[in-house]
Design a protein around this nucleic acid. Structure first.
Length: 337
DNA sequence: AAACACCGCAACCGCTTGGAG
DNA sequence: TCTCCAAGCGGTTGCGGTGTT
């Protein structure tokens, strides 16, 4: 926390528009200031933040008001500790999005980017660091995702394409497990995620893409195949910004069947790199037989690229051979028989 | 009980982006 | 095209609380 500055102190931050004419407060907000801001927002709603600060009678810059409202006073904020499900989701999303806290926060209703950022830096990062501090994972930097087996730092491209830090124990607190491994990724439409209710809050009512991940075995054989135990889960609700974009610009959002999801994913990862077509067919057939359906948001080609924030998938796919965990087919068959 | 170390988190800072004129 | 400004974002700071010695 910061000590409230003298009210007379000239603001030297980014609130340039006010500096010349007003002496602005900095530091912690008093209850009176909070009350003024809340009352104003309730009465007038959000407008230009400079006007909010002025009209609410606050000696604060608009930027400060905005932050206070967004991070603390907003009525729809969820308070209290992060649930294990939220932890899981944050970790999964961070593995995909990196430090795009606002993007992550957009998928966690009631949580702010600041809150998630703090939570990550103080709690999750530390736990991951502890996990990675085994003899084989001595590198201390946790800003990059790492291979849970040998501690090798992965490139951002690898990072973006994989779900890292997957939790083998499913919905329990993700990082409480000492057996964290990189996932072998596989689709599992059968296993509904306890996080799913979060998605009900998506404005369109469309449920987001849902993929499951397969934890690697405890012996470190992440690419070893073998029996599949679908436990770890992986969920990426859609970006609201994507939802709101007109079709044609950001891509259409389409509800698709599980088989379609499979096909999309296969095309996305340039499935030609994977050899076992029989297994792939086997999986798709199995999905079709069971008439299983994922209420999924899917993006194809450019659509997916846009949805993933302009990442160059072709670039990402260049090294697809270095992502054996993306080979769904060779690890799924035993589960479906 | 006091001193110290560590941690969590509210708030700040500086930069980028996008819209308006 | 350029400038200005508001909004948004991610990184950083530093205080108060808590745990440890």
């Amino acid at each position: 926390m910061r000590k409230p500055d003298n009210p007379g102190r000239i603001n030297s931050s980014g609130c340039a528009a006010f500096n010349a004419t007003a002496k602005l407060r900095k530091g912690l907000w008093s209850p009176e200031e909070d009350e003024k801001l809340v009352n104003y927002m309730i009465r007038n709603g959000q407008g230009c933040w400079s006007d909010v600060a002025r009209n609410a009678g606050l000696q604060r810059c608009g930027k400060s008001c905005r932050l206070r409202w967004i991070n603390y006073l907003r009525p729809d904020l969820k308070r209290g500790a992060f649930s294990p499900q939220e932890e899981d989701l944050i970790i999964h999303l961070h593995s995909l999005l990196g430090n795009r806290w606002s993007q992550i926060a957009a998928r966690l209703p009631g949580r702010t980017d600041n809150e998630i950022k703090n939570f990550w830096n103080s709690t999750i990062k530390k736990r991951l660091k502890n996990i990675s501090s085994s003899p084989n994972t001595s590198d201390s930097s946790m800003d990059q995702p790492r291979d849970g087996i040998n501690g090798r730092l992965r490139s951002n491209q690898e990072h973006n394409m994989m779900g890292v830090y997957m939790n083998p124990s499913s919905s329990s607190s993700a990082l409480s497990s000492s057996t964290w491994q990189l996932p072998n990724m596989a689709l599992n439409p059968m296993n509904l995620d306890p996080i799913l209710p979060i998605l009900d809050q998506q404005p369109t009512g469309i449920v987001g893409s849902y993929f499951d991940v397969q934890p690697c075995n405890a012996q470190g054989g992440i690419f070893g195949g073998g029996n599949i135990d679908f436990e770890g889960q992986f969920l990426v609700p859609p970006l609201e910004s994507v939802n709101n974009e007109p079709s044609g610009k950001m891509g259409n959002l389409v509800e698709k069947s599980t088989a379609d999801v499979m096909n999309n994913m296969n095309s996305i990862i340039n499935y030609n790199q994977c050899n076992n077509n029989n297994n792939n067919n086997n999986v798709n057939n199995k999905l079709s037989e069971n008439n299983v359906r994922i209420e999924g948001l899917c993006w194809e080609g450019d659509e997916l690229r846009m949805a993933m924030g302009e990442w160059d998938l072709e670039e990402l796919m260049k090294d697809v051979s270095s992502f054996p965990f993306l080979d769904f087919s060779s690890r799924m068959t035993s589960h479906w028989t």
